[in-house]
Design a protein around this nucleic acid. Structure first.
Lengths: 124, 124
DNA sequence: CTGGATCCGGTACGATACTG
DNA sequence: CAGTATCGTACCGGATCCAG
């Protein structure tokens, strides 16, 4: 019943997913979908991210065109990040994925427990 | 247009995505969606994967309940991997994601070029 | 045939210090 | 405020060798 269409993972796809689904990107997208944010706003909103990782994540997302960076020349400078139209289109696929994760989390956790228990029995 | 529902990325979700969307998992899922495979079949089908990475990927996917491992006690032993019902349900979200990637790849590549060119102008 | 064990180099990441 | 620079660490994937 599930269609037999292709599901190719060539290098460009793989690379793209790595850039957009990495550790912090989804959290950043989440924040910026709600409102434009400044750097330290994001940093506070995503409490565990380090400044270095946040910088790298923002750069990557900007390079891929899903967020925008605007420098406001005040003193001191302000930098505003916002989602782009392309970035907004990313939301649906991500939501589908997260919905799947939420729905199946219980099943998956049971599977993990079963697996770990079997492992333990095999290697006491 | 795009709904305003939540898009939470808590630690469990994050971990789950890391386990299921990592470098080789999608290729493995792809193969096993088409037919059950033995270890070396998979290895040949996914030409660049090393045996170590393939082993690790299969273990991870098995632990999360999306694939099954069956040992056939012949001489020498054979091991058959197949997708589980849970694994099949993963296909739709992944397809949505890949469809997004395919559709937007041209836009993204232009964004990258623009970004890189601006970088180069800024740092000659 | 199906992996496990080991070594190894690259890279991602965290912590800290410093700058325009 | 919004980063850059530097350092040390942890982990990952690749290569190779070995075993049930």
């Amino acid at each position: 019943m599930d269609t037999d269409d292709e599901l190719r993972i060539d290098a460009p796809h793989r690379e793209l997913l790595d850039q957009i689904l990495d550790k912090w990107s989804l959290s950043v997208l989440n924040e910026l979908c709600e409102r434009p944010c400044r750097f330290n706003e994001l940093r506070r909103a995503i409490s565990q991210v380090t400044q270095k990782s946040l910088t790298a994540t923002l750069r990557r997302l900007e390079r891929n065109g899903v967020i925008e960076r605007e420098v406001v020349s005040t003193r001191p400078v302000a930098v505003m990040y916002r989602i782009t139209p392309l970035g907004k289109t990313l939301r649906h696929p991500v939501d589908v994925l997260l919905a799947w994760a939420s729905q199946n989390m219980p099943v998956i956790e049971r599977a993990r427990e079963d697996f770990d228990r079997r492992e333990e029995e095999a290697h006491p």
